[in-house]
Simulated assay, not measured.
Amino acid sequence: MTLDPHRSTQNAPVWIAEAGGHHAVLAFAGTLDSHALQVLEELVMDPRLREPTDWTLEMSGLENIDLASAYALMRAVTRAPEPVSLTVRGARPAVHRVLRQAGLDTVVTYAE
Rank of each mutant, 00 (worst) to 15 (best):
E51L: 09
A68E: 07
L73S: 02
Q10C: 00
T87V: 15
N11T: 03
M74K: 14
E42I: 05
A94I: 12
P52M: 11
A29V: 11
M74G: 00
V108Q: 07
G90C: 06
P93S: 11
I65T: 06
L26R: 06
T87G: 02
R89S: 08
L43Q: 06
T87Q: 06
V14A: 15
A27Y: 10
R92Y: 03
L73Y: 00
L43F: 08
L49G: 04
R7N: 02
S60W: 01
E63A: 10
A91G: 07
P5M: 15
Q101A: 14
T78N: 05
L57R: 05
Y110K: 00
A12P: 01
L67E: 03
H96I: 01
V84S: 06
M74F: 12
T2P: 06
Q101R: 11
P83K: 15
P47T: 02
A27D: 09
E82N: 13
L57V: 01
E82G: 00
H96G: 12
E82V: 12
T9V: 15
L104V: 07
A12D: 05
L49E: 09
L86T: 13
A36S: 15
G30N: 08
P93R: 13
D66M: 02
R79E: 08
S60P: 00
W55P: 01
R89W: 13
Q10K: 07
T9L: 12
G90D: 02
T31E: 15
A24G: 04
N11R: 10
E112F: 04
Y110T: 06
D105E: 14
T109I: 10
S60G: 11
P52A: 12
R50L: 13
Q38D: 14
D4C: 08
R75W: 05
A12R: 04
D54Q: 15
M45H: 14
R48S: 09
D46Q: 11
R75K: 10
V108C: 10
E58H: 14
T53Q: 09
Y110V: 11
A94C: 11
T9W: 01
H23F: 09
R92S: 13
I16A: 07
A68I: 00
A68W: 00
V39R: 08
A91W: 11
L57F: 09
V77L: 02
V14P: 07
E112M: 09
L32Q: 06
V44W: 13
T2E: 14
L57P: 04
V77G: 00
Y71A: 01
W15K: 03
A19Q: 04
H35L: 10
A29I: 07
L62M: 01
Y110D: 01
R79P: 00
T31A: 09
T31K: 14
T9F: 04
T78D: 07
G90R: 10
G90H: 06
V14T: 12
L37F: 07
S60T: 13
I16P: 02
A27P: 06
L99K: 05
Y71R: 12
A76I: 02
